[in-house]
C-alpha cells in the first residue's frame, strides 16, 4: 500500500459490491413476480433492471421481488420506492421501458408519469 488514495480507491470499488447488505435507506425497485407477472415477462424485466444498474454503476439501489399485487392486467409491474416518499407503481413494463424508468426516476428523480399505474382507473 503506497498511499491513502490507493486505499480509498479500493474502498470505493468494494463499497458498491457490498452495498446490497447495508441498510442505507436506498431506493428499492420491486418487480412483481407472481404467476401472471412471470408469464407476462417479469423475469426479463428483472434482468433488464439488473443490467441497467450494472451498466450505469448504480450500486446503492435495492432490487427485490414481490408476489401478486392483485393487478394482473397491468403486469409486469415494477414499483419504485424512495424512502420517505410514496411508492410509484409502473404497469406493463417492458425491458425497453426499464432504461428510461431508471434514468428518469432513479437518476433524475422524475417519475415517468405516463407509465404509472393509475389506481383510480
Amino acid at each position: 500500500m503506497r498511499s491513502l488514495e490507493e486505499l480509498k480507491a479500493i474502498k470505493e470499488k468494494a463499497e458498491k459490491t457490498i452495498s446490497v447488505r447495508e441498510n442505507t435507506g436506498a431506493p428499492t425497485i420491486t418487480v412483481a413476480m407472481g404467476t401472471c407477472g412471470i408469464s407476462n415477462g417479469a423475469r426479463e424485466v428483472l434482468n433488464a433492471v439488473i443490467e441497467e444498474l450494472n451498466t450505469r454503476g448504480l450500486a446503492n439501489i435495492h432490487v427485490t421481488q414481490t408476489g401478486c399485487p392483485g393487478l394482473c392486467h397491468k403486469e409486469p409491474i415494477v414499483t419504485i420506492t424512495v424512502p420517505g416518499k410514496n411508492p410509484y407503481m409502473y404497469g406493463k413494463v417492458t425491458p425497453e421501458n426499464v432504461k428510461k424508468i431508471i434514468v428518469q426516476h432513479i437518476v433524475n428523480n422524475q417519475p415517468v408519469t405516463e407509465w404509472l399505474v393509475n389506481l383510480e382507473e
Binding site: 459490491t17 457490498i18 446490497v20 447488505r21 428483472l46 439488473i50 450494472n54 454503476g57 448504480l58 427485490t64
Partner: peptide, 10 residues
C-alpha cells in the same frame, strides 16, 4: 463492478 440484486450470506 458486478451488481447483484441480492446477496445470500451463508
Amino acid at each position: 463492478m458486478e451488481f447483484y440484486r441480492s446477496h445470500v450470506l451463508v
